[in-house]
């Protein structure tokens, strides 16, 4: 067993500096690497490029980095629900690249799987396709999209073991598995870190080979963005 366990978030984020590009898992506030984000806020590194489906809300998730103006560029598919983000974007302080959600996922997966680029029909004939190579397959036009290149990937899983194997829960899975191994260093944080051998190999979602460092998060707020319920009858 190759041990990937590190003692703390401090150790897990060793080596992050200004001007780096990060991949961050999560969909909305669901399954975001809360502890890594908090540490990035503390480190106060700047000029970051963050690739994440969303940009958090004003006071949680990536919104915390935006508040401190640590992010230079955001690559996302949907950025509603964040006033500070909107302000920085409209004033030109923040560079924003909006890309289709499936393209974002596949650009991660391509990086993880060693595929430099791929064709997708998403965005053809729109602003997204402008200036990109296009090609027709089976009568349908597609555009060429490239794998991401990132210095670190920060992901969050439900359970993990010392070997770096990961298991996700519910829709908190989202972009986390496809970001594993898509950056030079993948840092996984988990709610529960177990000794190797505790997880059934049949039920592991991401093998430890894609993870360089793993730690148990100190606490998880797991904030709900839209609490919707139905009445008991």
């Amino acid at each position: 067993m190759i041990n990937k366990k590190v003692a703390s978030v401090k150790e897990a984020l060793k080596g992050v500096t200004d001007n780096m590009t990060f991949l961050l898992g999560g969909f909305g506030l669901c399954g975001i690497p809360e502890n890594a984000i908090q540490r990035l806020v503390e480190l106060n590194i700047k000029n970051l490029t963050c690739i994440s489906n969303n940009a958090g809300v004003d006071d949680f998730g990536l919104g915390l980095l935006l508040q401190k103006k640590q992010i230079k560029k955001m690559i996302s598919s949907y950025v509603g629900e964040n006033d500070e983000f909107e302000r920085q974007m409209l004033s030109g302080e923040l560079e924003v690249e909006l890309i289709p959600q499936g393209t974002l996922a596949e650009r991660c997966r391509a990086a993880q799987a060693g595929i430099p680029a791929f064709y997708t029909p998403a965005g053809y004939g729109t602003e997204v396709g402008e200036g990109k190579e296009s090609r027709v397959f089976n009568g349908k036009p597609h555009i060429l999209e490239h794998a991401f290149e990132a210095d670190f990937a920060f992901v969050k899983a439900w359970k993990g073991d010392e070997a770096g194997n990961l298991v996700f829960k519910g829709t908190a899975r989202n972009f986390n598995p496809v970001m594993c191994g898509a950056g030079k260093i993948t840092v996984a944080e988990v709610e529960e870190l177990l000794p190797a051998g505790s997880l059934d190999p049949n039920e592991i979602h991401i093998p430890g080979i894609f993870v360089q460092r793993i730690f148990q998060g100190e606490r998880y707020e797991k904030r709900i963005e839209q609490r919707t319920v139905r009445k008991r009858v």
Binding site: N174, I224, E225, Q226, R227, V229, R230
Partner: peptide
């Protein structure tokens, strides 16, 4: 729901919300 679930059901009963189970509109 494109955030990663097939077989989506109705909203949960009050008190049964799970932050890890949402739809693409970020609703529980």
């Amino acid at each position: 729901s494109e955030n990663g679930v097939l077989g989506m059901g109705p909203f949960p009963f009050e008190g049964k919300e799970d932050a890890d189970i949402i739809n693409a509109g970020k609703q529980t």
